[in-house]
Computed example of a mutant assay.
Amino acid sequence: MKEIKVACRCLCFFILGLRWPCRSDIRRRTTCRKDFTKWALHRVSVIRRAVFLLYARYDFSLSRSGLSLGLLLFCNLLHSAEATIAVAANFRETAQEIAQRLESTSPHRFTIISGSTGKLVSQALYGAPFDVVMAADEARPLKLIDEGLATMNARRTYALGEVGLWWPGKTPPFGIIELNELSPRSVCLANPALAPYGAAAWSLLEQSGLDVEWLAGGVRVDNVNLVAGMVAQKQSRAGFVARASIAAMMRKGDLALDDQSILWLSSEAAIQQDLVLMKRAEDNPAAQWWVEQLFEAPIQHLLKSHGYQLPKEEHSQ
Rank of each mutant, 00 (worst) to 15 (best):
W39E: 12
K170I: 01
E138F: 03
L204C: 10
A135Y: 06
I15M: 13
S106K: 01
F110R: 01
E97G: 01
L53G: 02
G253S: 11
L125M: 12
E313D: 15
T171M: 04
S24C: 14
Q309K: 07
P129G: 13
L226K: 10
L102T: 04
R243G: 02
S61Y: 09
H108T: 02
I26V: 12
L71Y: 03
M230F: 11
D146Y: 04
D211S: 12
W289K: 03
K279I: 09
K119W: 05
P168D: 01
L303A: 07
R64W: 06
S65H: 05
A199V: 02
P141T: 03
R109V: 08
N284L: 07
F52V: 04
L149F: 05
G164L: 02
V212L: 11
C10Q: 09
R43T: 09
G148H: 04
F74S: 13
N223E: 11
Y158I: 03
D254V: 04
P184F: 06
I271D: 06
V6H: 08
K34F: 13
A56P: 01
D146N: 10
T94R: 04
R49H: 13
S116E: 06
I271N: 08
L71E: 03
V231K: 10
H42G: 02
K38R: 14
D35N: 13
A56T: 05
A201C: 08
N180Q: 12
G217P: 11
S316W: 12
L194W: 13
L18W: 07
H315N: 07
Q272D: 08
W264A: 00
T30S: 05
T37G: 00
A228K: 14
R33G: 08
A154V: 05
G70V: 09
E103L: 01
L69R: 15
D137S: 08
R9P: 00
A247W: 00
G217I: 13
F130D: 00
Q123D: 13
P21M: 10
C12V: 09
L73N: 10
G148A: 11
A199Y: 04
Y158P: 04
P311R: 00
R92Q: 08
I262H: 00
T84Q: 12
L182S: 02
S316G: 01
Y58C: 09
A154D: 14
Q123P: 06
V227S: 06
A269I: 07
D25R: 15
G169F: 00
F13C: 01
E314P: 01
Q300M: 11
M250V: 14
R29Y: 08
E314V: 15
D222Y: 08
L210H: 06
P129D: 14
Y126F: 09
E97T: 09
S45C: 10
N76L: 12
V276F: 06
S80T: 03
